[in-house]
Design a protein around this nucleic acid. Structure first.
Length: 277
DNA sequence: CACTCTACCTGTGCGC
DNA sequence: TGCGCACAGGTAGAGT
């Protein structure tokens, strides 16, 4: 599942890899499945993006934000927003490369290239907007650069289980199920601890864990999880390791459901200490 | 406000 | 081999 580190990794590949996306011009848009278009119809999408040139690539949480320059003066800037959700994939290939059965959009570019969006589950969406905030207005600050004061005050001002709070994109943007489990493990915090029961030291450890886990995962091009997501080299400690020994204390990793999500943790390293009411 | 459930989807992997 | 089914999870929206 692409989360913040996988999305950031993808941006770097598209921006700095070879071939690179910035500077490429869209010759034609092929919408293979129009359910992927979140805010416009097939015709409008094709007409709007045609002959536009890709420039900056950015990200807010798990949303990819592609700046494009329209061809005719005044050459206004607009944005293609992409959310990969769970199984979306975005990649640059030669136009000769055959479409996969899961290709939903193929953008034909100059220089014989194509930007493909594949998504078996059809959960991923794309938007075309004048301002990225039209899509990202509900998101909290990006998890990689969130500041401690904001982070700490949101935690104590709410009274929610800490894991669902970490997953709440309006609190911080970018953490998904895998990294939520990893961050809580590193911080030694039980996933169902109520947020207002955390003291300053706990919050500091959690903040350090969030920034640390996510930046390490970015540095290693994302997570490496058997059968789930194997693009990168970031080794998970608890996610998907149910029943296997904790890497710190050898206790069997437990799996429970928290807010309808599979949740992995070490009962010994992450004891539930203070959920008084 | 916090929570739970459902819908959206389909590939994968299990038990039988 | 093949069938049925639980499972995976990001997000929105409705309901408790």
């Amino acid at each position: 599942m692409p989360e913040l580190p996988e999305v950031e990794s993808l941006i770097r590949t598209l921006r700095d890899g070879s071939p690179a996306l910035p500077g490429r011009v869209v010759m034609r848009a092929d919408i293979v499945w129009d359910g992927v278009l979140a805010n416009c119809c097939d015709n409008v999408f094709q007409a709007s993006i045609r002959n536009s040139k890709f420039s900056a690539i950015n990200r807010h949480g798990k949303y990819l934000i592609f700046a494009l320059t329209a061809p005719e003066p005044p050459k206004n800037i607009f944005f293609l927003i992409v959310h990969l959700r769970m199984t979306g994939r975005l990649y640059l290939v030669s136009q000769e490369h055959a479409l996969s059965r899961f290709t939903r959009i193929s953008l034909q570019l100059d220089e014989g290239l194509a930007l493909r969006f594949d998504d078996p589950r059809k959960f991923g969406r794309v938007w075309l907007v004048q301002n990225p905030a039209e899509v990202t207005f509900g998101l909290g600050p990006d998890a990689l650069t969130v500041d401690f004061t904001y982070f700490a005050s949101c935690i104590v001002e709410h009274r929610r289980q800490i894991k669902p709070l970490l997953l709440d994109q309006s609190f911080v943007a970018g953490i998904g199920n895998i990294y939520a489990d990893e961050c809580l493990f590193r911080a030694g915090i039980n996933p169902i601890t109520l947020s207002d029961a955390l003291n300053n030291k706990d919050i500091e450890r959690l903040y350090t864990a969030v920034i640390g886990v996510l930046s390490e995962a970015v540095d290693t091009q994302g997570a490496n999880i058997d059968g789930v997501f194997k693009e990168g080299r970031f080794a998970v400690s608890v996610y998907g390791r149910t029943g296997r020994p904790c890497l710190v204390c050898n206790t069997a990793i437990a799996k429970i459901r928290v807010g309808q999500r599979g949740t992995h943790y070490c009962p010994s390293c992450q004891p539930l200490q203070f959920n008084h009411t």
